[in-house]
Simulated assay, not measured.
Amino acid sequence: MSSNTSTATAVVAHAAGDLRVEAIEVPAPAVHETQIAIAYGGICGSDLHYWSHGAAGESILKAPMVLGHEIVGTVTVAAADGTGPAAGTAVAVHPATPGDTGARYPEERPNLSPGCTYLGSAARYPHTEGAFATTVNLPARMLRALPAGLSLRDAALAEPAAVAWHAVGRAGDVSGKRVMVIGAGPIGALAVAVLKRAGAAEIIAVDMFDYPLDIAIAAGATATLKADDVEAISAVEADVVIEASGNYRGLASAVRGAMRGGRVVMVGLLPSGEQPALISLTITRELELVGSFRFNDEIDQVLTALADGSLDLSAVITHEFDVNDALQAFEVARNSAESGKVLLKF
C-alpha cells in the first residue's frame, strides 16, 4: 500500500447472497475529488436486490462492488482544484453522473441521459462503486453543503426524498387534490410527506401490511387502505395516484383508483420486460400514465425544506445499525412488513 492510500470499512456485494463488511483501499483523491467521512447511509431497494439476487433489474453484478448511494458525511479533504466545499463541511450527495451516448432526451432533464451512471450501480462494467464506506472519494460536483442547522442524520434521507419530490412534481399541482399512494414503503412514505408539504387535501396510502401504513399516517396520510381491498380502492377516485409499489398489481390498483381524466405517476420500478396492465380502462377513462425516474436538482429543494422544517421525514426512519452489523441491517430492510427506511451508521 502506498503512502497516499488509506483503508476504509465498506459494505461489499460479492454475489447473490454474499454480502461482506471488509476493508478496502482508498487512494488519494484526484484533483477534482473530495474525500468524505461518511456518517449515514440509507439502504435502498437496489442495494437489497444486488445482495438478494446479484442484480438490480438488468444491472447484473459481474464483480464485487461497494454498495450505497443514499449517503451523507463530512468533508475531510477538499478538492485540490478549489471546487466544492471546504474541509469540515457537512454534505449530502447527488449520486448521478450524466453521460452522453448520442441518444436524444430533453437537455433540462439529465436524469433521462441514457449514459448516466449512479453510485453503487452494476449497469456498466467496470461497475460504478458505491459509497457505503467509512471514507470515500467523490467528485466535488456531487456534493451539496447542508443548510445551517440541518443535522447529518436528518439529511440522511435527502436522496430518496428527492426521488419522491420528483415524482410529486411529475404529478403537477396537487394543492387541494385527493391523492392516493400505492405502496407505503420508504419511497411511498416519503411521497406522502412531500404531498403533505405540497398541500394535498387528502392522501390515501395503500399497502399490504399494517406497519408501513402506520408510518404513512405518521408521515401525513389522511387515510389508509389495504392493498387487497379492490372495491375500496376503486371507490377512491383520486385526482392523482402515485404508484410506488413497483408491482403490476399496484399499477392495476392505481388505474382502478384514479378518477376519470386522472393522472397516474409510476415511480415504483417494475421488472424489465412486458407487464400486464389495465390498458383498456386507461384508454376509456382517459388516464395519463406518467413515468418518474430518479431526479435532477430536487435534492436542493429537499435540503432547504428539511432545514426550514416544512418537510418532516422523521417517521420514515425506523432502524439504525452500525456498519459492522450491515448484514443484520439488510435482513431487517428486506422485511417490508416490519421496517421503513433502515440506516447504516458509519
Rank of each mutant, 00 (worst) to 15 (best):
T7L: 01
A8P: 15
T9G: 05
A10E: 02
D18Y: 02
L19C: 09
V21S: 09
E22K: 03
A30T: 14
T34Y: 04
G41Y: 05
I43F: 08
C44A: 11
G73E: 04
T74S: 10
T76V: 15
A78E: 14
A78V: 09
G82M: 08
G84M: 08
A86W: 07
A87F: 11
G88S: 03
A90R: 15
V91Y: 09
P95Y: 13
P98I: 08
P98T: 05
T101F: 05
A103Q: 12
R104I: 13
N111F: 05
S113I: 01
T117S: 02
L119F: 15
G120S: 10
G120C: 01
H127V: 04
T128P: 00
R141D: 11
M142E: 08
R144W: 11
R144A: 00
L146G: 02
L152A: 14
R153S: 08
A158N: 07
A158L: 13
W165H: 15
H166G: 02
D173L: 14
S175H: 12
G176F: 14
V179Q: 03
V179D: 03
M180K: 00
I182K: 04
P186V: 13
L190A: 12
A193F: 00
L195F: 02
K196Q: 12
R197W: 05
A198P: 00
A201Y: 12
E202T: 07
A205I: 13
D207E: 08
Y211F: 15
Y211T: 07
P212V: 01
D214P: 03
I215F: 08
G220F: 14
T224I: 09
V230I: 13
I233W: 03
S234D: 02
A235M: 06
A238R: 07
D239A: 06
V240S: 00
I242W: 10
E243M: 03
S245V: 01
G246R: 01
Y248T: 02
G250F: 13
V255E: 01
G262K: 12
V264Y: 02
L269F: 04
G273N: 11
G273K: 04
E274C: 04
Q275N: 06
A277E: 01
L278E: 06
I279T: 02
R285V: 00
L287S: 02
L287D: 06
G291L: 12
N296R: 06
N296M: 12
D308M: 12
A315F: 08
T318D: 02
F321S: 13
D322P: 04
L327I: 13
A329S: 05
S336H: 10
E338M: 02
S339E: 09
L343H: 15
F346E: 10
